[in-house]
Write a protein that binds this DNA or RNA. Structure first.
Lengths: 168, 168
DNA sequence: CATTATTCGGATAAAAAATATCCGTAAACA
DNA sequence: TGTTTACGGATATTTTTTATCCGAATAATG
């Protein structure tokens, strides 16, 4: 059971978008450069975030991405579901219906105990992620870093982000 | 994020071993036939359960598998870890150390907020599974089935299980 | 003691999924 | 009109999962 790498990248991208000045955007290419990951694949993850409504995409020159809503209203569960999809991780193949003692289909309208337990565990997993917002992530990151780094990031944003509808 | 199929099979196999008379065993082949799954692959999962100490294997003619301890003392978490392995599902690639604003390695001794949150979520997942025992699974299955099925299973066990050290 | 049935471990093959890239199109701006 | 960017689909590559097979070890049986 492995979480897609894209989830990690998407989460970090959201954290960076969260500290962007109001109305500014970052292109997929800039986000990839910031995190030093493959640009084309980073772009794919951003598309997933976009179609899930977590970020807003701005096309055209000086376009890019920005968060669709405040960082406090976006959770890691949202990011996880956007990138990973909502399909349950446990795939019940109904083995109880198989073999010489297989149960009748009519008796299998509710999931078996094993499947139900895994569904419950996955709910616990998602609930745990739902309790962490992008704002929390940003806060913990800035708590762990010094003033010099914050300045570095601000400078990088200044020269790599853009504000659509206006000259940079 | 997908749970291996083998986890489901192994859990069902444990549930069947749980209703076996004391000291009896079921071969990997019999377990595969009962659940109508590929014998060689079922055998692999049983090996995993065996090396994790959840089941005891008996070699030789009339050999097979039996639970290593009471069904109430084996949880779905045990089965999950045995088959799936203990490696965390979230693989942090330390992207925070990458790129133009990468953090120094010395400042990354603790996991970042994102990684920590996913580790916590996985703990929640496992804790949830830890609360369900094979005994619980058997109980919920028998609650959902009728008397006829129980008799069917008992008959099947009679003719497919074996008791090492004695004639069947 | 030979035969048979079984687990064990490793090697290997096939299928599926994750990872990664590319390209044509549409949109927005200068 | 030209440039820059997101979008969506197609495709390639790599890794993981799924599945099979085989030889060695082990134990019961006749």
């Amino acid at each position: 059971m492995k979480v897609n790498k894209g989830v990690e990248w998407a989460a970090h991208a959201c954290a960076l978008l969260a500290v962007l000045p109001e109305g500014w955007t970052l292109s997929a290419e800039a986000l990839a450069a910031y995190h030093d990951v493959p640009p084309a694949y980073m772009a794919k993850q951003m598309q997933a975030l976009s179609s899930a409504g977590l970020v807003v995409s701005v096309r055209g020159a000086a376009g890019g991405y920005r968060l669709a809503r405040p960082a406090r209203d976006i959770s890691l569960k949202d990011v996880f579901l956007a990138v990973e999809g909502a399909a349950p991780s446990f795939r019940c193949t109904e083995v109880r219906q198989n073999g010489p003692c297989g149960a009748a289909k009519a008796q299998c309208r509710k999931p078996c105990g094993i499947a139900a337990s895994f569904y419950a565990a996955e709910t616990a997993f998602r609930d745990s992620l739902a309790g962490v917002t992008i704002m929390d992530v940003v806060a913990s990151a800035s708590a762990a870093s010094d003033l010099g780094k914050a300045a570095k990031i601000a400078t990088w944003i200044q020269s790599n982000a853009s504000r659509p509808g206006t000259e940079r």
